[in-house]
């Protein structure tokens, strides 16, 4: 594997670990590792110990992964190298998820009952996509343009090559549909936790950031897949390794943008008027801090407990199973029907 790719992956692992370690800074007031607690609990020795227990495996695993990346992966030949490198990344993410689930268990003894008081604004929320419809459908337009180019130049593309670019564009289409639908749901279907004031403004800022992050991923993946499709079809010059390196470098850069946002995000004092403590979801309905099941909650998408600009499906709502099934089954259906 080229050294540049190893360097980029190392930076990505470090930045990813930094994001995971600093993620608790992004929890809502009154939420700690997916459990409703007293906001003052975060200043206690117990909280600091739990935080360290959460961060330690992530730091250790990141160091081990980077060491393996530089010592082991270069000695592997053929596809084993990239597969091993990818496996290390997934291992790092897996350790963070397990660490989060364990931290949730440690916090539960300090849980506080969810407040039954709900305060909501009676001003209808504006239903507009940040930036308008054009940036939102941009990735699909790019896929459509690439597909049109393929169709128009069909005669000049060897028959045995043709399915490959189509498959890449189909992959781009499906992943765009996923990102765009999640971005839409987050914009229009999540609830407002903070009803008014500075807290509501910060919440809306977080929602917009999450929207642009998802859209950014969609554009990035479309750029890679559509570009590769055109290169495979020999419509554009074959993609040089530099193209792949540049694309891969954009991933840790995106991670750094997220990290910068997490660090610079304004954390409001607890006595800010209109600041909601906790959220509107009962602790008992959360599993491991990131799987939510509550048939009594009408929301399809609920506020995440792992930050403030993510979301989770409510598996107590039957439509969330439909959404999850569509996401999981789509690649298999496409494989069976198309190829």
């Amino acid at each position: 594997m080229p050294l540049s790719i190893l360097a980029i992956m190392s930076v990505g692992l470090v930045v990813g670990a930094a994001i995971q370690c600093l993620a608790p800074l992004n929890f809502r007031p009154g939420i700690f590792f997916g459990v409703t607690v007293d906001p003052e609990f975060l200043r206690t020795e117990h909280a600091r110990r739990i935080l360290w227990r959460y961060r330690r495996p992530i730091i250790v695993m990141t160091v081990l992964c980077i060491a393996a990346l530089w010592l082991v992966v270069p000695r592997l030949s053929g596809p084993a190298g990239p597969i091993a490198a990818s496996a290390l990344v997934f291992l790092g993410v897996g350790v963070a998820i397990v660490s989060m689930a364990r931290a949730t268990r440690h916090v539960r003894p300090f849980a506080k009952p969810l407040s039954p008081i709900r305060t909501v604004s009676v001003i209808p929320r504006k239903r507009t996509l940040p930036g308008g419809w054009l940036p939102f459908v941009g990735p699909m337009l790019m896929v459509g343009a690439a597909w049109l180019l393929l169709v128009m130049r069909r005669d000049s593309i060897p028959l045995e090559v043709y399915p490959g670019p189509l498959a890449l564009l189909l992959w781009a289409f499906v992943s765009n549909a996923h990102f765009m639908s999640v971005a839409w749901l987050v914009t229009f279907r999540t609830r407002q936790i903070n009803p008014s004031g500075a807290a509501a403004y910060e919440e809306n800022t977080d929602t917009r950031f999450g929207y642009w992050l998802r859209l950014g991923f969609a554009y990035s993946l479309t750029f890679l897949l559509a570009g590769s499709a055109l290169a495979v079809a020999r419509i554009t010059p074959a993609a040089s390794p530099r193209f792949v390196v540049i694309w891969m470098a954009s991933l840790p850069v995106s991670a750094m943008i997220v990290l910068a946002y997490v660090l610079k995000r304004r954390r409001l004092p607890l006595d800010t008027p209109g600041l909601a403590i906790g959220d509107n979801t009962p602790d008992a309905c959360w599993k491991w801090g990131f799987i939510y099941h509550n048939p009594d909650d009408p929301a399809l998408i609920v506020e995440t407990r792992a930050g403030t600009f993510g979301c989770d499906l409510n598996f107590g709502n039957k439509w969330s199973w439909v959404v999850a099934a569509v996401i999981l089954a789509t690649p298999f259906v496409i494989r069976v029907l198309w190829f």
Partner: peptide, 28 residues
Amino acid sequence: HLLVNGALQPGDQVPTVRQLAIDLGVHF
């Protein structure tokens, strides 16, 4: 209470049933 006090004026839109139910966490 809001309507009587004039916090909501004639012509003002109020949230849809769906939006208010989701925000409050109660059934539609």
